[in-house]
Design a protein around this nucleic acid. Sequence first.
DNA 1: GCCTATAATGAAACAGATTTTCATTTTCAA
DNA 2: TTGAAAATGAAAATCTGTTTCATTATAGGC
Lengths: 146, 146
Amino acid sequence: MSENTDPTLTDQWLAQLQTSGYRLTQPLRVIVDILVNSPRALGPVELYDLGRKEYPRLGLVTVYRTLDKLEELGLVQRVHQIGGCHMYLRATQGHEHLLLCTRCGQVCYFKGDDLSALFNATAEASGFVIQEHWLQLYGLCANCQS
Amino acid sequence: MSENTDPTLTDQWLAQLQTSGYRLTQPLRVIVDILVNSPRALGPVELYDLGRKEYPRLGLVTVYRTLDKLEELGLVQRVHQIGGCHMYLRATQGHEHLLLCTRCGQVCYFKGDDLSALFNATAEASGFVIQEHWLQLYGLCANCQS
DNA sequence: GCCTATAATGAAACAGATTTTCATTTTCAA
DNA sequence: TTGAAAATGAAAATCTGTTTCATTATAGGC
Ligand SMILES: [Mn+2]
Ligand SMILES: [Mn+2]
Ligand SMILES: [Zn+2]
Ligand SMILES: [Zn+2]
């Protein structure tokens, strides 16, 4: 196990996985522990490399399968990268959005956007019925500003 | 050439490509014409199939290379799909965002979001300097509501 | 604690998307 | 018109992600 700075959240995830009918295996525990404690989004291969430090015979296939389970349960979400494919990150809680550091990848969760006026105006102008919105901010974290 | 409903914009793109040092080839013209006139985002293979109707010996590699050029010049942008890889679309002009139909893919460009209050509050709370934002709305277009 | 049904794993093969290589063709400025 | 250089397209290579299947680990019943 790594330093496990947040055992409570790890346990919550494991409990939810078990409740949902999944078995708690060693590879699963390792992957959950890494994701819960990561300050930034991780790609499958990154997660695989980190995971093998804890559990050397981990397979990349298991990483993909575990990410699918966690995404299905809403515990992680995809973060789309500007260039290519996406990475995974602890999901936002309720109505939160992401603020990502463009230099180090540090992620910050925020809430408090009220876009209803914009939605109404846009719906009226376009004739669309608006169902969802997707908002993400980019910037420099406190560390990376120097 | 297809029906070419907007020759002016096609010409603008070609002029900008030429100014940037690119040669105006037949495959390039075909791809630009399709993208300028598309009402929805297209994937590379879709674009390839459409392109071959106009220019049968078009290669898929050329589609990829042309999309790179157009993206580099800011003429097209990627649209991230919920599941996997992205598609390409005429880029927004200035400060516009996208509203996409979840059923037929129809795209609508809109402007008028004022998120400055949110940016200020979030910057203060997080210590980040905010550089960019990414906002995309999803809904049902007028046609798809029935 | 031991046993067993079955879920989960990982190696290998497969599939799909994108990139690289390289010989040939096309563009465009002289 | 000509030729240097850019662009093209076929084929091979690379990278991601998925499927298959034999083996292993888990959880629940004893
Ligand atoms: Mn919101
Ligand atoms: Mn994406
Ligand atoms: Zn940073
Ligand atoms: Zn529609």
